[in-house]
């Protein structure tokens, strides 16, 4: 499966209903707890019911379902071996969770700068001095395989199926 040049499928955004910056639209939303009030638990694995909570709040921009091929691609990126039934379950669960996350599109964040971390710290430096560190034995003590004081790794280059997924 080749993914290079694949066209991203952007989330639909609600450009039309936005006034001001970063404020909730005026229509009542169900609030984060609406699901708790919904009696029987919503089944996972049914994308329609998973997003009904938000749709009921008047937001219809969040339907987003993953394909099995996308799940397989993401699992490959994460180097995560998944059985076929795990992939199907994850497709349904991730689609449902992404549906809830689509609520973020109710906010206009065009003029908002991103926050990656909350501290007013930048460029925290330390003196460039030698310090004590773990001994080689201690560093290797948990390695499943060590050879001659090194971590042992299977061949990365040269073999068939060497782990490079560039097409």
């Amino acid at each position: 499966m080749h993914w290079v040049g694949r066209v991203a499928k952007p989330l639909r955004t609600r450009q039309t209903s936005i006034r001001g910056h970063g404020h909730i639209r005026s229509n009542a939303s169900p609030g984060p707890l609406a699901m708790l009030d919904s009696g029987p638990k919503m089944p996972v694995g049914n994308e329609a019911s998973g997003t009904a909570w938000l749709r009921a709040g008047g937001d219809e921009s969040m339907s987003h379902s993953l394909s099995l091929a996308e799940v397989e691609h993401v699992a490959g990126l994460a180097r995560l071996g998944l059985a076929p039934d795990e992939m199907e379950r994850l497709r349904d669960q991730l689609s449902s969770i992404l549906g809830h996350i689509g609520a973020l599109n109710r906010l206009d964040t065009e003029a908002i700068s991103p926050t990656a971390q909350v501290l007013p710290l930048t460029n925290v430096l330390r003196p460039d001095e030698t310090r004590p560190s773990l001994s080689q034995d201690a560093a290797l003590a948990n390695a499943p395989r060590a050879i001659d004081g090194f971590f042992a790794v299977q061949a990365v280059l040269g073999g068939a199926g060497d782990g490079d997924d560039t097409p």
């Binding site: 970063g22 973020l104 964040t109 700068s113 991103p114 926050t115």
Partner: peptide, 9 residues
């Protein structure tokens, strides 16, 4: 990035 911006809010 969208989530980081909402985090600012």
């Amino acid at each position: 990035v969208k989530a980081q911006k909402v985090r600012t809010l």
